[in-house]
Amino acid sequence: MSGTTPGARIVVRYRIEGMMTDALGLLSSVDDTNCVVETKRGPVEIALADIALAKAVPPAPEPRRPRSESR
């Protein structure tokens, strides 16, 4: 997690119960043992020892406009 500052949009792949999962969102905080990622479903606290990969990602795309009903 070195080089990544709070507020950056990141994706983190980490271990849970014998498998891997991802967290995508804004890095809220990081210390010597844990980080917190603010995802759409809420904050996720991740032990740094469980992280397999973490990287910065570009901002989320703008929401699409709804399709018009008439064709």
Rank of each mutant, 00 (worst) to 15 (best):
1 M>V: 10
3 G>Y: 01
3 G>S: 05
4 T>F: 08
5 T>D: 07
7 G>R: 04
7 G>Q: 00
8 A>H: 03
8 A>N: 09
9 R>F: 00
10 I>A: 06
11 V>A: 07
12 V>A: 09
13 R>V: 15
16 I>Y: 10
16 I>R: 11
16 I>N: 09
18 G>E: 03
19 M>E: 14
20 M>R: 14
21 T>W: 07
21 T>Q: 15
22 D>H: 12
23 A>V: 04
25 G>I: 03
25 G>W: 01
25 G>H: 01
26 L>H: 08
26 L>N: 11
27 L>F: 01
27 L>N: 02
28 S>A: 12
30 V>H: 04
31 D>A: 06
32 D>E: 12
33 T>P: 00
33 T>Y: 09
34 N>Q: 12
34 N>C: 10
37 V>M: 02
39 T>W: 00
40 K>C: 11
40 K>M: 15
41 R>Q: 14
41 R>I: 06
41 R>C: 03
43 P>F: 11
44 V>G: 08
44 V>I: 14
47 A>W: 07
47 A>D: 13
47 A>R: 13
50 D>T: 15
51 I>E: 09
52 A>Q: 15
52 A>H: 13
53 L>C: 02
53 L>S: 11
54 A>F: 06
57 V>G: 04
57 V>S: 07
58 P>E: 02
58 P>F: 00
60 A>I: 02
61 P>M: 04
62 E>W: 05
63 P>S: 05
63 P>K: 02
66 P>S: 05
67 R>E: 11
68 S>N: 09
68 S>F: 07
71 R>W: 10
